[in-house]
């Protein structure tokens, strides 16, 4: 493996890990400090708002199909509706996702 690749790989991997890990340590210290001050161990409000919004943003991004054909858009719409319908009745994780993928697959195969 060339040296350049090693250097880039190690720095990118360590940097990515630190971006996932350092905020955890910061937050754990923040919570511990609040606990020692006998305050409720709550996270800052902006963070509790930000989390669900990140999921909504990921959902929005993932909705755009890789091939932007009318068939792909129709499959996306029907797949999403199927997912939502099954979720409404089952209130679980696996079955709605399965139903969405199957519906998406049927429309893709049929078109």
């Amino acid at each position: 493996m060339p040296n350049d690749l090693w250097i880039a790989l190690i720095i990118s991997a360590v940097g990515t890990l630190l971006m996932r890990l350092l905020p955890l340590i910061w937050m754990q210290r923040h919570l511990a400090r609040r606990k020692s001050q006998e305050a409720a161990a709550e996270m800052p409000t902006w963070l509790s708002v930000f989390g669900p919004l990140m999921i909504a943003a990921m959902f929005g991004v993932s909705l755009v199909p890789s091939s932007m054909t009318p068939e792909a858009w129709i499959a996306t719409a029907i797949g999403s509706l199927s997912t939502l319908t099954v979720w409404w009745f089952k209130r679980s994780l696996g079955w709605p996702v399965f139903a969405g993928v199957v519906a998406y697959g049927f429309v893709t195969l049929a078109s």
Partner: peptide
């Protein structure tokens, strides 16, 4: 090399808000 590393880390920067959200 510096640009490869900078761009890789920039794309992953959104991860900084994940751990604090689940830390509690």
């Amino acid at each position: 090399l510096w640009l490869v590393i900078a761009m890789t880390l920039l794309i992953n920067a959104r991860h900084v808000v994940y751990a604090p959200n689940i830390a509690i």
